[in-house]
């Protein structure tokens, strides 16, 4: 048992290396999580942006937080897909019959989700910089942005884990991603909520993505974050804890 604990982190890093190879060898994944959000950013800034009144002089600055969240939400479907495939193909049985911690394969997937999303977000920020994004945020504000994005990723990842563990088919495992794709679109990620009809506005202003987007935008632009940061954190941490609890319960029951 001691030996197994000692190697826990090195085992997870082996799992991480494996899943990262899966991602880099899947054109489909790279397109969906990185190229698509970048294409959307180009489309919104250079085609539609001129017609959108956001009250900021630089639309890239306004748009970037939402694009980052879309990229993360797009990546989530692949987390379920990869985990589900592992369970189906028997490679989890192989891992579980080896002297490694039972939860190591699962944590490998969770860590992969964090690392791969971090990579695509960095790529997106680099493209945004070329497109004229600029931030007056200091180190602390950037750290806060990183924390919020990581918590958002973890919250969605654990939801994806539940989906993969309880799904009967690949389609069932990936379907979790669709509602998550929509949330950033029905938020203040692209346009201010002011312009929306009151029913839609009530929804957008009270769903998690809006407060997260508003917080990140304020942090990056060096504006006061107000209450939004606490609402954003409460959403992320709340969803993460509940999803983690149910995911772990399903994992232990299943294996």
């Amino acid at each position: 048992m001691e030996v197994i604990k000692k190697h826990f982190f090195s085992d997870i890093s082996v799992m991480l290396g494996r899943s990262m190879r899966h991602i880099f060898r899947s054109m489909d994944t790279i397109i969906t999580v990185t190229i698509m959000p970048i294409a959307m950013m180009l489309l919104f800034v250079y085609v539609l942006g001129g017609a959108i009144q956001t009250g900021t002089d630089n639309y890239v600055n306004y748009l970037l937080p939402g694009i980052m969240l879309i990229s993360i939400a797009n990546g989530i479907g692949y987390v379920s897909f990869r985990l589900f495939t592992d369970l189906q193909q028997g490679i989890f049985d192989r891992f579980h019959s080896m002297p490694i911690a039972r939860s190591a394969p699962l944590w490998g997937h969770v860590l992969t989700s964090l690392v791969s999303n971090a990579i695509s977000v960095v790529v997106i920020i680099l493209v945004a910089l070329i497109m004229g994004f600029h931030s007056s945020a200091g180190v602390l504000s950037w750290l806060a942005v990183v924390c919020i994005l990581a918590l958002f990723t973890l919250a969605l990842t654990w939801i994806a884990v539940i989906a993969a563990l309880s799904a009967k088919s690949v389609d069932g495992a990936s379907v979790v991603a669709y509602p998550l794709h929509l949330l950033p679109l029905i938020s203040s990620a692209f346009v201010p909520t002011k312009s929306m009809p009151s029913a839609v506005r009530a929804f957008t202003e009270n769903q998690p993505v809006t407060s997260i987007v508003e917080t990140i935008r304020a942090l990056l632009l060096g504006q006061p974050v107000g209450n939004d940061i606490w609402i954003a954190l409460a959403w992320c941490v709340g969803i993460m804890l509940v999803a983690y609890f149910f995911a772990m319960r399903t994992y232990k029951k299943r294996l």
């Binding site: 190697h7 090195s10 085992d11 082996v14 290396g17 494996r18 190879r21 899966h22 060898r25 899947s26 193909q89 028997g90 490679i91 049985d93 192989r94 891992f95 019959s97 080896m98 002297p99 490694i100």
Partner: peptide
């Protein structure tokens, strides 16, 4: 060691990478 009913190998990795992965997990 368990060799399950359906070859439990990683389809996306190469044969060599599969062996290296298991070797690392066995430290």
């Amino acid at each position: 060691s368990l060799t399950g009913q359906y070859a439990a190998v990683d389809e996306i990795l190469t044969g060599r990478e599969n062996l290296q992965m298991i070797g690392k997990l066995r430290h």
